[in-house]
């Protein structure tokens, strides 16, 4: 009977370990489900917009496009930079890969990182769920570009024999986005882009034929100046890249 109790205790311990890891896996699946739900909402919004405006070019003056490759080539510049994670007693996150996941139909950034504990060999690979955040004040002329880290999802498989990894993963999952870092790209996107279309006045020689002769003289052209203001009307993150639609306003200041 004692033997049976020992076997049951071992089963209980294994079940406990599995339950704890199952809890973490459930948390990862919940995060995944939440991400998919957000994506679904965005797709429905886009579908609804396309019903009302099948061709946004018809209502716009300028269509700008930046492919996913160009944007991700720029983000690749952040590779191998390190972030000290707040309130985690020496956990450091090193970016391995950062790219906008255009298939999400949103400025959703997919990031791979490695989290290490300073002064130890403990490290875990992690998927970092981030959001490219474009912040514009109402009536403002520019928007600020930031990448906010929302969730860090450890990729390690752990077991009863790797409890320290479990501890590390638990620490990462316990962080919420208020405590996490922000990548401030120090880049301002012009929402209103002002320019002046201008032609300098000039004097140039001109000659022309009349029926029985040729007249030579000087032609004086007037200087022309027209302020132009491009305003961002709409932007879309689509699978091929970022599409911006702008309006042209030619009112005098």
């Amino acid at each position: 009977m004692k033997k049976f109790a020992i076997i049951l205790t071992i089963i209980a311990l294994v079940a406990l370990t599995w339950a704890l890891s199952g809890d973490t896996e459930n948390e990862i699946e919940r995060l995944e489900w939440r991400q998919l739900k957000k994506q679904e909402d965005r797709l429905y919004k886009l579908a609804d917009f396309l019903v009302r405006h099948p061709d946004p070019r018809k209502a716009s003056d300028l269509h700008l496009f930046f492919s996913r490759d160009v944007i991700n080539d720029i983000l690749a510049g952040t590779k191998e930079t390190k972030v000290a994670l707040p309130k985690t007693e020496g956990l450091v996150l090193t970016w391995k890969h950062l790219e906008v996941d255009f298939d999400q139909y949103a400025p959703s950034v997919v990031a791979e990182a490695q989290v290490t504990k300073e002064g130890s060999s403990l490290q875990v690979d992690a998927a970092v769920r981030t959001q490219l955040h474009i912040h514009a004040n109402p009536g403002g002329e520019t928007a600020e570009l930031k990448i906010e880290i929302h969730e860090i999802v450890p990729r390690a498989r752990w077991s009863i024999f790797k409890l320290e990894l479990k501890w590390l993963a638990g620490k990462l999952l316990a962080l919420n986005h208020h405590e996490l870092a922000t990548i401030d790209l120090n880049y301002e996107i012009p929402l209103d882009w002002q320019t002046t279309l201008s032609v300098d006045g000039e004097k140039k020689p001109l000659s022309f034929e009349v029926e029985r002769g040729r007249i030579h003289g000087d032609l004086t052209l007037p200087a022309l100046s027209q302020p132009a203001r491009w305003s961002l009307r709409q932007w879309f993150f689509l699978p091929d890249g970022l599409h911006l639609f702008l309006d042209l306003n030619l009112e005098e200041p």
Binding site: P56, R57, H63, F65, S67, D69, V70, A228
Partner: peptide
């Protein structure tokens, strides 16, 4: 979404005929 496409280009700029006439 196909008719918005700029093919395999990295960047694209489309200026509408209407905006040219507006100027």
């Amino acid at each position: 979404l196909k008719h918005w496409s700029f093919g395999t280009s990295d960047i694209g700029i489309w200026i509408s005929s209407r905006s040219i006439q507006k100027v």
